[in-house]
Structure formats: structure tokens, C-alpha cells
Amino acid sequence: MKKVLFLLGHLTDLDIEWMIQNGHKKKLKNGQQLIKKGDHIENIYIVLSGQLAISDNGTEIAAIGSGEIVGEMSFLESRPPSVSVIAKELSTVYSISKELMNTKLENDIEFRANFYYSLALFLSDRLRKTTNQFGYESPDEADSIEENVLDGVAQAGARFNQILHKFSEV
């Protein structure tokens, strides 16, 4: 769940409301493919519930759950994904189109700055965890979060619950 806090903790309430109004919920059945390696994707996703497998040529690389972001690398690079994403169980994701996001980013400078900053924090955390898996972890940094990120954590958690609540009504 910590991953989504990077994103939601640095956006404004109006930004979150815009995202809620412009995205939709998508349910995935066990085994259903959300993203296929090599195929361009049109959306960026936040996992609301369930568990997804990140895989490459049928080999599971990682499992992700509630609060994780998917499709962010293809969003940033405008390249097809290098892995596939498949539901490991009944799952629900929040989906927002790259086209709508790009329009918002082009027209709202504050949103753009906050969105890209939070995405940079998210990707930095992911890279740190990856390098830690190779034995480069400092015991003091095992699960720490910088103070500037912590400032928005409580608000981000409330925002994630707001998104969950909104989509439980649909």
C-alpha cells in the first residue's frame, strides 16, 4: 500500500477528485491478463484489491497488491511494457487513460509537477527495493521513508480510502 502513498500524498484534493471523476474501476478474474508484454497500453492503473503477478515469458518476477501502480513505465517512456501483468486472484484496478492524463498534465502545471515528482519517488523506492534484493541494503534503510514523503502519508491514505469508497459504490 505504501506505493500509492507516493502518488496520492503529493497531489491536491482537486487533483484526486479529477482522477476519481475521469477514471474507472476494472474487475479482473483470476488468470486474466491486464497488460501483455510488448503490446502498447492505453491506461495507467492503481491496484485497489487483489493480487497481480508481474511476469516475463511465463516466469513470475513479482507479485503486487493493493496500492501498487502499474503501467507507469510505459506511461513515462511511451514504449510498450517489458513484462506482462496477470491477475493471481479476483482483483480490482483503478484505470485512467494515458490520453486523459496527458491532457491534464499539459494543461495543469501544478498537477504536472506534483505528479512527476511523486512518480519519481515511487520509481526510486522501487529501484531501491530491487537493489536491496541483491544484497546492497543498509539495515538502517530497510523500510524507511523520507520525512518529506511522510508528511503526506496520512492524507494519502485518506485519499486512497476515498478512491476505494468511490469505486465500491459503482
Rank of each mutant, 00 (worst) to 15 (best):
L164K: 15
V70R: 10
I35N: 08
A158W: 04
A156C: 04
I44H: 01
L5Q: 04
L76M: 11
F134G: 04
S124V: 06
E68N: 13
G67K: 03
E147V: 10
K2S: 08
V47R: 07
Y136K: 04
H40A: 09
N57W: 04
A142M: 06
A113N: 14
A156D: 01
A156K: 00
K25W: 07
A63T: 15
D108V: 02
K29C: 12
G38M: 12
I163K: 03
K104I: 03
S82C: 01
E17L: 09
E68D: 15
E146G: 05
E106Y: 01
Q133S: 11
E141I: 03
Y116Q: 05
G23D: 14
I46Y: 03
V93D: 06
M73Y: 05
N148L: 09
A142Y: 07
G23F: 13
L5C: 05
L164F: 01
S55F: 05
E110W: 00
S82G: 01
E106R: 06
H24P: 00
Y94N: 03
Q51S: 14
G135P: 07
A142Q: 09
E89C: 08
A142R: 10
K29P: 02
G71Q: 08
G65H: 06
E17K: 14
L150A: 08
F75P: 02
G71F: 11
L76H: 02
E110Q: 12
S138F: 05
L150S: 05
A113H: 11
M101G: 02
L119A: 02
K3A: 12
T12D: 10
D151C: 03
L105R: 04
F115G: 00
I86E: 13
Q21S: 15
E42H: 14
G65V: 06
I35S: 07
L105F: 02
D143L: 05
N148R: 10
T131K: 06
P81S: 13
S138A: 06
A120T: 09
V4E: 03
K104N: 03
L100D: 13
G23M: 14
A154G: 04
F115D: 00
L121D: 10
N22M: 13
D143Y: 07
M101C: 08
T59K: 15
N22V: 09
S138C: 04
K29H: 14
K98G: 01
N107A: 06
M101E: 02
S138Y: 03
I16F: 02
L164C: 15
Q21M: 14
T92N: 08
D125V: 05
M73A: 12
D39H: 12
E42N: 15
K2I: 14
V153A: 07
K36V: 15
G67S: 06
S97T: 15
G58Q: 09
E60G: 00
E106T: 04
D125M: 13
K37G: 04
S168G: 00
I64A: 07
G38D: 12
M1T: 10
G157M: 14
T130P: 00
R112Q: 12
E110M: 07
N132L: 00
